[in-house]
Amino acid sequence: MSKPIALEVRNLVKYFPTGHKGFLGRPSQELKAVDGVSFVLSKGETLGIVGESGCGKSTLARLITRLLDPSSGQVILDSQDITHLRGRRLRDVRRQIQMIFQDPYSSLNPRHSVGQIISAPLEVQGIVSGDELMSRVREMMALVGLNPEHYNRYPHEFSGGQRQRIGIARSLILNPSVIIADEPVSALDVSIQAQILNLLEKLQQDLGLSFIFIAHDLSVVRHIADKVAVMYLGKIVEMGPSSAVYGRSLHPYTTALLSAVPVANPKKRGASGRIRLQGDVPSPVNPPSGCRFRTRCWKASELCASHEPPLIDMGEGHLVACHHPMEPSEGAGKPPVER
């Protein structure tokens, strides 16, 4: 028995033209930012998306929210294909999918009062006005832990954590069903991060939201996500229930990523079994043939160079795209905190 689906993404691709325009004005090269991503988000679930900078997380978010048009693939919201909607129908969709951004400083207009910022989506949609608008704004401010009496203040009068609350209130004012949060706590100090993470969790439970939570911080995603997808160079390389991915990672990249996270416990310092990746992520303009991770992978074989590994279910919804998945005997059976 499976839960109802909130959002589905099928084979989503985004290539950005790059380099000098060549013969006939065609771009000479393409940057493969997102390259064939598929997943399902169930209702009320939190899907975490992790991966290092440049792997395509934000582009994926902007494709789903229709801020960008995909090169190919589909985005399906509540059984409706929204990939090519325009005009009023796109506006309707935008009510249902909202985004929270990383930088609470730059995503709020400094010349607008908090009340104006939070109510702006309502006005764009033209659904309510006057007194009702004001009462909705106050209600929303209280919900996210802001003092409703402060609706007339400006963003600079708030701390970083409070500004993120303003961003959250703005994203919730239209009663969306899906929230995509792109690095929502990365710019905040830990004590403030914890406040915002707790708020997001509470809101999700109270409002029954479906959540996509994007972050490069693996610990934060571990804390908040039910399911997690690991991206590398525009592709999902591993996906599954958080406990499975974090506890028994199957992809060498996931394993290396987890083992690089500093552990806040000096007694577990410098333990054996730590994997250090060499070198840097290759360019998404010319990704390696076959498996894109093979140039940094210690398990790579000839097969990895010639054949791209498909994303396969290894059981219980734990998917991996690798010709040589980690074996329990390689240390992958233990959570990396027990190194």
Binding site: S191, R222, Y246, L258, V261, V337
Partner: peptide, 11 residues
Amino acid sequence: GLLGAVSSLDD
């Protein structure tokens, strides 16, 4: 406070 606020890889 700081130690309590850190998320961890450990579930």
